[in-house]
Nucleic acid binder design. Structure first.
Lengths: 250, 250
DNA sequence: CCAGGTTTAGACCATGCGGTCGAACCAAAC
DNA sequence: GTTTGGTTCGACCGCATGGTCTAAACCTGG
């Protein structure tokens, strides 16, 4: 933890330091980040920094903690999801969370990058602060899953930890994908995206018997008409290849 | 690319160098890896190394290329999947691929780690070798997706690139999860795992109308009996918490 | 106005990095 | 026997790193 002196610093200076650190750590990860660069960017002397923080790790964890706290504040509570009484309501509420989360990450991508840096630094796992942070995130996830299970929105046939891991992985992949192409994607496609993204989560997480009632465009009749309204490709990809595979003959 | 002299080295020495490099790069990523450590581990002098390779990046790309080639050889062809004529057959064949891939990664985790190191090194994206490697992997993925779409095993309503990204993300998360717990998991649960894992891929990738016929245990009737045979938790997770949430009242 | 603790500054340290370079080695050619 | 040229070696270079330390600047109570 930071020396108590740091907390007594004038707020703007504290912010300058934490912001510089957040950017550096988010960009390069813990190992790759340069303490010297942070010091330069923050406009503080080395002596002062080592007067505030024990070492690089101390600064890093303080930065993560601060960023997380700010993100959490922006995020608000999970009540809407926890209050759901049926599967549909649960996923609708999750959609809301999803939107909120997305806009937060969009506003401040360093939050996500910092989280990744935290998880990717094996040397830090011993630190108490680290454990506490991870436990907090894990607790949130468990709470959500438990609530979903209770209302039949989430399958019980998978280890919740595995399910969490998979959902996080999907989310990360989606984030990467979208961040990489947010400027090149058709705005219209972008608008319909949250529904489709959530649909992916539902597909992975819902109980098998509830899939047909929760998944977009799923019918009880196994073979629907080949051209469905919702079967429009998302982006420009189909412009290349669709001619050669007109319709499955089966 | 490596100086041609490297290829003329006696095979065992070449192997020693590439193995040392693969381990170091897999463990620390490109930036984190130490050329000096590799040199020490390989038992070669620095001068010799710089006689074989232009620089660190040259060694890295050569290592990746070599490892990938060896992995590809072990992996074999995609014919079984490309030859499928219906959705079920496609996914059955994918199951086979999945098993093969898993056993390869299990035997030699450095392959996966090297791939990650490659993707995580933004500075290398300009290199021609890098582009070629990525293009090769991307081509394989496109081929598979195209085949799946043709037989109705893969949805068309999502940009294939996005779908690939999500599936890769899921796979990565699963790998991480399993690698982390492979020793603590119940062997019985482990045995049934490939089916469940593939089921996750099917859920994400199949067309909506085919879900009920492809997903494990999906019924057309939305509300099945609460205790289904396949509704057994996968691992030890329930041993901790089940007492406080005995049964959903629904 | 000064004493004495608190805070700041930045030169300095050891270490490790990727990369260079001139010398040594050695087998084949003359 | 000497020269040549491909190969190997490791000391060395400049640089950046995380971290230390001393001396000056600053502030505040007496």
């Amino acid at each position: 933890m930071p020396r108590p002196r740091f907390d007594q610093l004038p707020a703007p200076k504290r912010r300058r330091i934490l912001d510089a650190a957040a950017e550096e750590f988010a960009q390069h990860g813990f190992d790759g980040a340069s303490y010297n660069r942070i010091i330069r960017a923050a406009g503080v002397s080395k002596g002062a920094m080592y007067y505030y923080f024990d070492d690089k790790q101390d600064l890093f964890l303080t930065t993560v903690e601060d960023t997380l706290a700010r993100g959490q504040e922006a995020f608000g509570s999970l009540d809407s999801v926890l209050a759901a009484t049926d599967a549909r309501g649960f996923w609708d509420a999750m959609q809301g969370l999803n939107r909120r989360a997305w806009s937060i990450f969009y506003d401040d991508p360093s939050l996500l990058a910092l989280g990744k840096a935290l998880l990717a630094s094996p040397g830090l796992t011993e630190s108490a602060t680290y454990r506490e942070l991870v436990a907090r995130l894990d607790g949130v996830m468990r709470e959500l899953v438990a609530a979903g299970v209770e209302v039949g929105a989430i399958r019980r046939d998978l280890d919740p930890a595995l399910l969490s891991a998979v959902l996080l992985g999907m989310g990360e992949a989606l984030d990467r994908f979208l961040i990489a192409r947010v400027d090149t994607l058709d705005p219209a496609a972008l608008a319909g995206l949250p529904e489709r993204v959530l649909d992916l989560f539902v597909r992975a997480a819902a109980p098998a018997h509830a899939l047909s009632s929760l998944v977009l465009g799923a019918r009880d009749e196994p073979r629907a008409a080949p051209s469905d309204v919702s079967d429009q490709p998302l982006a420009d990809a189909p412009a290349e290849a669709p001619a050669e595979a007109p319709a499955p003959e089966e």
